[in-house]
Design a protein around this nucleic acid. Structure first.
Lengths: 198, 198
DNA sequence: GCAACAATGTATGCGGTGACAACAATGCTG
DNA sequence: CAGCATTGTTGTCACCGCATACATTGTTGC
């Protein structure tokens, strides 16, 4: 006997949406299709998401939360050596970014109307900043405002992910490029990565 | 008297599509809307583009061609000093990537079904490779396979563009981050950016 | 208990879109 | 100028997002 109320529609929709995103990308994501999978009428999702973008916003928000937990998990299993920790978060970021490429696109789309998304994004970005500060404390990164090196690290990782997802980088070479990126970052930030004359 | 044949539909559509892409993004791009703007029936574009993706493929192809010419133009006006040249191409890439963000997304989407796109992409990527090799010749970059540093450079630039377009980097800080990225790249590749033990 | 209300799902419709097929006008070529 | 390929038109279909009116269910105050 089908209950009139689904009881857990919002969570069900988000879960199905994340799977659809992974399998078919954001463009193919259809509210009506999700409703069909959940066994409700095609207008039911509207009770939980005002429109399509609201669903994407929610996906971005949970995506940032999951990214944050995965980065923290990677750091937790890494030791105390800074380069190892840096490599660990970087690898974790790349894994997330390549396994959930479409989700990452949604997260970075910049079309969000919800402040919640920006707040959720603050968690993983803050974590990266903390890693940078940790590196400064250990002397592996030159002291100064951690923001710029943080952005640079994130940009490099995001770029590698973009090239990989765009099939411009062969997945087999990903690990090697990651190591090169980490080494370059350390080499570049070690001495005088900060501009003092600008 | 409206001629039955438009005469230049394909080029007109591509031009209008590129403008629509810049103004409203790829998701909003509508074949029917383009047909309306061109003053033809809604099915006319089909004669030139089998489907929507075919149009996007064509846009990606011309996009890579334009990127190539802009990078070459930037190099042409730069002098002979390697760091200056590196900075010039990088700035040109970022300008393209931030002014035509949606087009870049299409170019890197990795959904292309046309080999023509990959061939068009080879031009600017080959140019970057040449820049790297030039740096090796001048001793600014450690000798070895130029592919890895090339990918790293492209990734960093692409990542900075992604963060900027995603409104995670304030445009005012773009120039500073670009300089930091170039400096880091030079610092990282100068000595031992290549792994010799992997 | 139960009435009033809020929350949640349903039924139906509108306008828009991409894709497709049959047909019409035009240009090209032997 | 006859035949054919090219290019544009009209009509149709399935699908989608969004909107509104309505039905059902859970909750809360009396």
């Amino acid at each position: 006997m089908p209950a009139y109320h689904h009881g857990n529609l919002r969570a069900t929709l988000l879960e199905a949406a994340e799977r659809s995103l992974r399998e078919h990308g954001a463009e193919q994501l259809s509210l009506r299709e999700l409703a069909r999978e959940a066994g409700v009428s095609h207008a039911a999702p509207r009770r939980h998401f005002a429109d399509r973008q609201a669903l994407l916003d929610a996906l971005a928000e949970t995506g940032f939360a999951r990214l944050d937990t995965e980065l923290r998990a990677a750091l937790a299993t890494a030791g105390a050596d800074f380069p190892v920790r840096l490599h660990a978060v970087s690898a974790a970021y790349l894994r997330f970014a390549t396994e959930d490429a479409a989700l990452l696109d949604v997260m970075y789309a910049g079309k969000h109307r919800a402040d919640r998304v920006a707040e959720a994004a603050a968690a993983p970005f803050g974590l990266l900043n903390d890693v940078i500060k940790d590196g400064q404390k250990h002397g592996a990164i030159a002291p100064g405002d951690p923001h710029r090196p943080g952005v640079l690290l994130l940009a490099t990782l995001q770029g590698i992910a973009a090239l990989t997802n765009g099939r411009l980088v062969i997945p087999e070479l990903l690990d090697g490029i990651l190591e090169a990126a980490v080494e370059q970052f350390l080499a570049g930030q070690r001495t005088d990565g900060q501009r003092t004359s600008g």
